[in-house]
């Protein structure tokens, strides 16, 4: 069953088209990986799916009973200012907000935040100030927040950027497990082709002049794939 479908989607900034006439659909249980060179519009596409930037043409449809409040999102960059006072716990908990009924967090939501912090190995940083953490630690905090917010689908913009190889491998395992066992649909932007080919069942390749959308096998055989995978990837 399709969760998100885009038809002839175009997005432009100040009249300059970034995403051009793109059509694809994401089914329940999919793990879609979005690849492409810097500036090809991957982040822009993510943001338009989330309604953060206006589309200039075509349409995005949520179907299969998907609501915006069932989405978890990891931004590529958060414009958090340098001296923002916020503890790790506060940030992760804020991910639960789209589920809270009353004005305060319930026991269940606090437990969920604690669970996700444990999952990402940041429980010991709970009380620390976000701005004093390393880049990789910050990334894991935001991932834990995304996991708190998600129910059906997870949108990750370069989740492993800035993580060390061990944590990267752990994170891939985690995403794979969330996708396969917890049946979360995943849409992920990544520059790490071999790593993401292992997780993804579909690839969306964005390019300034055209795009590719299909299964990983089709991608490997396509001109796009051959060109982009080059000799570097042996997957």
């Amino acid at each position: 069953m399709s969760l998100i479908s885009c038809k002839n989607l175009s997005v432009a900034y100040d009249g300059k088209t970034v995403v051009n006439n793109l059509s694809f659909s994401v089914d329940e249980g999919d793990a879609v990986c979005i690849v492409g060179e810097n500036g090809s519009g991957k982040t822009t596409l993510m943001k338009s799916l989330l309604g953060l930037v206006k589309t200039s043409g075509g349409c995005i449809e949520f179907s299969g009973g998907l609501f915006q409040s069932e989405i978890g999102y990891l931004p590529q960059q958060t414009e958090v200012q340098k001296d923002f006072p916020a503890s790790v716990n506060e940030i992760v908990l804020s991910g639960c907000l789209n589920k809270t009924k009353g004005p305060f967090f319930s026991k269940k939501e606090k437990a969920k935040a604690a669970y996700n912090m444990e999952l990402l190995g940041i429980t010991h940083l709970k009380k620390r100030c976000y701005q004093e953490l390393s880049g990789g630690q910050q990334q894991r905090v935001l991932l834990a927040r995304a996991l708190c917010a998600t129910k059906k689908i997870l949108l990750l913009d370069e989740p492993v950027a800035g993580l060390d190889p061990i944590v990267t491998a752990e994170l891939y395992d985690l995403i794979k497990k969330l996708n396969r066992e917890d049946k979360l649909t995943v849409i992920m932007v990544s520059h790490d082709i071999p790593g993401s080919m292992d997780i993804a069942n579909k690839i969306l390749h964005l390019n300034h002049n055209g795009s590719f959308f299909g299964t990983t096998d089709e991608y490997e055989k396509s001109d796009f794939g051959k060109h982009f995978l080059g000799g570097g990837a042996n997957g």
Partner: peptide, 20 residues
């Protein structure tokens, strides 16, 4: 509104993205 005020102060786009 305390929790919401925190969220909208910390990261407005995340809030919008997750349906708030």
């Amino acid at each position: 509104f305390y929790n919401k005020i925190f969220a909208v102060t910390f990261d407005e786009s995340f809030m919008k993205a997750t349906g708030l």
